[in-house]
C-alpha cells in the first residue's frame, strides 16, 4: 500500500510549518521525520514550527516523536517550536512525565515566528562574535 497520508510540510521563508491534524502512527511519524529532515537540508531552514492545535489525544509515542523531531532539527541547526498545544494535551503530557524540556513552545504560530526571528537575530549577532574567536 502506498503511503497515501503524508503530513504536508509548508515552507514559509526560512521556516518550515508542519501541521499535525491526524492521528499519528509509527509509519506516519517515520515518514514525517524523513520528509522533515530532508526538507530542512534542502531549504536551509532555520526553524520548524509544529502545529498541534487540532490534536486532541496524545500518548507517550507522540511526546517522544515531538522530542525526537526537535533533537533532529537541532542537529541540522534549526530550532523547533511546538505550537498551540491544548490544555488537556499539556496536562496529559505532564502526567506522563514528558515535559519536553528541550522543546520550545508557543501558543500561536504568529508568536512562534516572532520567537524564532528573535532568537535567530540574537544568534546571528552571537555568531559574528564567535567567528572572531577561534575555537
Amino acid at each position: 500500500m502506498a503511503d497515501v497520508d503524508r503530513i504536508p510540510i509548508i515552507k514559509m521563508g526560512e521556516f518550515l510549518l508542519v501541521s499535525i491534524q491526524v492521528d499519528m502512527h509509527d509509519r506516519l511519524a517515520i515518514t514525517l521525520q524523513d520528509d522533515l529532515t530532508a526538507s530542512i537540508v534542502k531549504n536551509h531552514a532555520r526553524g520548524v514550527l509544529i502545529d498541534i492545535s487540532s490534536l486532541e489525544i496524545v500518548d507517550s509515542f507522540i511526546g517522544r516523536m515531538l522530542a525526537n523531531i526537535a533533537a533532529m532539527s537541532r542537529v541540522l541547526d534549526a530550532e523547533t517550536v511546538v505550537v498551540g498545544m491544548r490544555p488537556a494535551v499539556a496536562i496529559t503530557l505532564v502526567e506522563l512525565g514528558m515535559s519536553l524540556s528541550g522543546v520550545r513552545t508557543a501558543l500561536t504560530v504568529e508568536r512562534a515566528m516572532d520567537m524564532l526571528r528573535e532568537s535567530l537575530g540574537s544568534a546571528a549577532r552571537q555568531g559574528s562574535v564567535d567567528a572572531a574567536r577561534p575555537e
Partner: peptide
C-alpha cells in the same frame, strides 16, 4: 512544578 511544566507546554 507540574503546573509550571504544563503552562510551558502551552507556551507560557
Amino acid at each position: 512544578l507540574k503546573t509550571v511544566a504544563a503552562a510551558r507546554l502551552m507556551g507560557a
